[in-house]
Design a protein around this nucleic acid. Structure first.
Lengths: 235, 235
DNA sequence: CTTAATTTGTACGTATGTATT
DNA sequence: CAATACATACGTACAAATTAA
């Protein structure tokens, strides 16, 4: 018989429509400048109400993928007007490659450490030192210390004096955790060799304390690469 | 006289509501786990219909800022569930600092060049060389060559073998152009000293051709920093 | 220039499934 | 179990803007 695909109840209709439209744009089926079908028309062709279509288009508009003009219609926007960055684009079905994310993170994290070595002030150094000892205490207490590890990286990024580093690294770290969970890897960042991890941390912090930008960069890059290898996602 | 703000007709209601809610979340007025007012309630308190509120919440949900449970309500999500990265967060009113964006771009672009030097294949080298000569031709023809310049950077990023670099650098470049336009700077990237720019390009390309990862990194970093200085947005 | 048709923007009403009390 | 609150979804209606006749 078949004949019905009443839409998985778990996935909301607006999500489905958003993905469908985004996929059509990403695939090139809809080119920049093209007009989308009218909301009413999209509704009947997809079998959903106009409200659902409006929510989906509203999301795409917010991401800069489409632009709407009242009375005229909705148009595919050029790639230069994207307002948000996603590691997994909306319409995509494949998960992003963990190794690729790690490489991106490695560059940014190393850069943040280098800037931190140049610009850190007394308050930054206090924060960094405190985070380092917090990891030590967590390890000695038998806990995994992932929260403390995260705090150290945040403190270093903050010492760079560039909030864009802080926000982007936070975003990347969260996406990484999500992807690691999805891949069912051992999520404990410091699992296996907590001593080695802490040694890497100390090298980074010492370089920042010494104001050695180049050393901070290489030490942090080595740390991130080692983390990727511990997870088995290195190149 | 002033006295009236009957909603700017240019700004759509859904945009306003989205910004208002995002600002409340960013400011900490709404903490993770907090429940948002009911849609109906938000509608009356903001003076808009429930459809508008739904569109706004739908956007925030898509960005991972809130999560909704049917029958329960809409809740502020933790910062770890963000699904998109924006240089200018939704509720923010201040434009991001150009120097900060340039620093972030510098790190990623330099990293992409370094990976390109390690991994480029024959096809990549052809693309890169073609882009370099295209810039030369554009300059000799008296055109600004910004499109050709962009193509070179895309080719280098693609040669890195990491699509995350390509997509993020594309995002950053577009955001940078947008911010430069908004700041009313001279948007011509190669304005002033096209010869110097091309010399910088050639150094990067030669390092990639030679497979010298470290040289490609430093050359690209110098190029981006010089570009920032030409715009007068360096530190 | 005026008129009419189309389309988005906004508002409101209703029904249903779900969660909480 | 029952009642209430809420998100989800659909439908209708009108205003505002655009476009074409």
């Amino acid at each position: 018989m078949e004949g019905f695909t009443p839409l998985r109840p778990s996935a909301k209709l607006a999500d489905e429509v958003t993905s469908a439209l985004a996929a059509r744009i990403a695939s090139g089926e809809l080119m920049p400048g093209d007009r989308l079908p009218a909301e009413k028309e999209l509704g009947v062709s997809l079998g959903v109400s106009r409200s659902v279509v409006r929510e989906a288009i509203s999301r795409l508009k917010h991401d800069g993928l489409v632009e709407t003009r009242q009375g005229a219609g909705a148009f595919v926007a050029g790639p230069q007007s994207a307002k948000s960055f996603r590691l997994q684009p909306t319409g995509a079905d494949v998960a992003p490659d963990l190794a690729h994310i790690f490489e991106l993170r490695c560059e940014v994290e190393a850069g943040a450490a280098a800037f931190a070595a140049e610009r850190r002030d007394a308050a930054d150094l206090v924060q960094i030192e405190a985070a380092l000892t917090a990891i030590q205490l967590a390890m000695e207490a038998g806990r995994d210390g992932v929260a403390e590890d995260k705090a150290l990286h945040v403190a270093i990024a903050a010492a760079s004096g560039n909030p864009a580093f802080v926000r982007f690294l936070d975003f990347l770290a969260n996406q990484l955790e999500e992807a690691i969970r999805a891949a069912r890897l051992n999520s404990l960042k410091v699992a296996g060799r907590p001593m080695a991890v802490q040694r890497e941390h100390r090298r980074v912090v010492e370089a920042i304390q010494a104001g050695d930008s180049a050393a901070a960069r290489t030490a942090m890059a080595a740390h991130i690469r080692a983390a990727a290898q511990r997870l088995g996602v290195a190149r």
